[in-house]
Simulated scan of single mutants.
Amino acid sequence: MTASKVLTIINGWLHPHHADETVPLPNNPPEPHQPIQPASGCAGYQIGIGTILHQQQKLVEQLNEQLNLPAELQQLFDQTLDNLTHWLHLLPAHPQHHCEPAGAIRHALETAFWSVTAMQQIHRDHDLYPDQRRAREPLWRLMAGVAGLLYDSGRMTSCLVVQQSSAEQPTEPWPALQQPLGSWLQQHRITQYSPHWKQCDTDPVKPLTPEYTAINLFLLPQLTPRAFCNALQPDGDNGTLWQTFVSALTGQKNGHGVSQIIHAVELARLKSIKLHFEHGQALNQITKPVKVKGQPEAEKDDERSWLKQIISNLHAENIKWAKESLLLPWPDAVKSEKTPEPDILLRQWNQRGWLRPVGNQIVFRRNGHLVIALQPDISRQCKQWLSTESITGKQHDQ
């Protein structure tokens, strides 16, 4: 896409057409292939970003655990998240998914979570020494997290018109590409507003088009702190980090970026959407059986999840805790011949976001034994599967 085309697109968003559809709030979200149906609007009101993010506190904590960033890099991510929340406020993400107030922020957090999770399985920096690769790992996690967080921002700001709900002298609609929605509400002392969809013909399960992802670059300097760009361009770097980030943000591969990460960000967006249709939230897959290649369909449907089987068979002496995470001896916890290979389970559980890395390691050593740690939410679910003897076991804190 040429620069002139990008400017043409941006100009179109700066001078939008009148809205013709409102945000639907269905009890049961339609399937992705169904057409968008007009419905009542999703009303919003002025609220602080702290209150919005508090509603997503568990997901934010899980995302931060996956990021595992040093303080200076965590601050860059937190500032970006605050900026995005201030910009999108209580907007929904799409007429067909995450339609609730602040659904856009929920969808962004989920996409960031799955982007970071997938990135940990992708090899990069092959030409560097091991100590150099370890030093750059936090930068890669920051890059994947911010790319996932902002990936859908261009489409959401482009497809919505926000107007004051009722007033004797109504204001102009929210200038979505020029000012955060939170600032606009404060400036005009608006207490209630109504978002409406413009023509939004993007099928949520198809990749985002360049017309939307090009807007991400326009919003980038307004959503990220100045130090973020410098952080992704360290001294002596050949530009791989920054090129991968820009390519992931636009969905356009180039010769300098790590193509697997670029693809992973789009897949993370789709995962958030598909899990929303299935469960209503992205981190709620725990009760579904893990599907193993080659296993008969009947067994896939009838058997309990492998995780439930493994937890139920644990002995009291094998139950260890680190803060709120259940530790499993690995691969010793997988003893049954009916379960898949430990490597298969490890890959599937990590892809689902069930594992809590320590440092940058999924399998790590504790008290001389190899173990894996489950995410706190998953660990709490596992408690009901432990035998009575195991539940009474002492929980150990790190």
Rank of each mutant, 00 (worst) to 15 (best):
T2K: 09
A3F: 09
V6I: 12
N11S: 15
G12T: 10
L14E: 14
H15V: 15
H15N: 15
D20M: 11
E21V: 12
P30I: 07
P32F: 07
P38F: 00
A39L: 07
S40Q: 09
A43E: 11
Q46D: 13
I47N: 01
I47Q: 12
G48S: 12
I52A: 06
Q55S: 14
Q57K: 13
Q57P: 02
Q57V: 09
Q57S: 12
Q57L: 11
V60G: 02
N64W: 08
N64E: 14
E72F: 11
Q75D: 14
Q75L: 15
Q79F: 01
Q79M: 05
T80K: 04
L84T: 04
T85Y: 02
P92A: 02
H94Q: 05
H97N: 10
E110K: 03
R124F: 10
R124I: 05
D125C: 04
D127L: 08
L128Q: 06
A135P: 07
R136D: 00
L139N: 03
R141G: 04
A147G: 04
G148N: 00
G148A: 04
Y151I: 00
S153A: 15
G154Q: 02
V162Q: 01
Q164W: 02
Q169W: 10
P173S: 02
P175F: 05
P175W: 05
G182I: 01
S183Q: 09
Q186R: 09
H188S: 03
H188D: 05
W197V: 09
D203E: 09
P207M: 06
T209Q: 13
T209L: 14
E211Y: 09
L217A: 05
F218K: 10
L223K: 03
L232E: 01
Q233I: 02
T240Y: 04
L241E: 00
Q243N: 13
S247C: 08
A248N: 07
L249H: 04
T250D: 03
G251K: 00
G251Q: 03
N254K: 03
N254V: 05
V265C: 03
E266W: 00
L267G: 07
L267R: 13
L270I: 07
K271Q: 14
S272F: 04
K274G: 02
L275Q: 14
F277Q: 13
F277E: 08
E278K: 15
H279L: 08
L283I: 08
L283E: 07
T287G: 11
T287P: 01
T287W: 12
K288E: 10
P289R: 06
K291T: 13
K291W: 10
V292R: 12
V292G: 06
P296F: 06
E299P: 07
E303A: 09
L307P: 00
I310L: 11
L314D: 01
E317N: 15
S325T: 06
P329D: 04
V334I: 15
V334H: 03
S336W: 03
E341Q: 13
Q348H: 10
R352C: 09
G353K: 03
W354A: 06
G359H: 00
Q361P: 02
R365E: 13
N367T: 10
H369L: 12
V371A: 07
I372T: 03
P376N: 00
Q381V: 12
L386W: 06
T388P: 15
E389T: 14
K394C: 08
K394F: 10
K394W: 09
K394V: 13
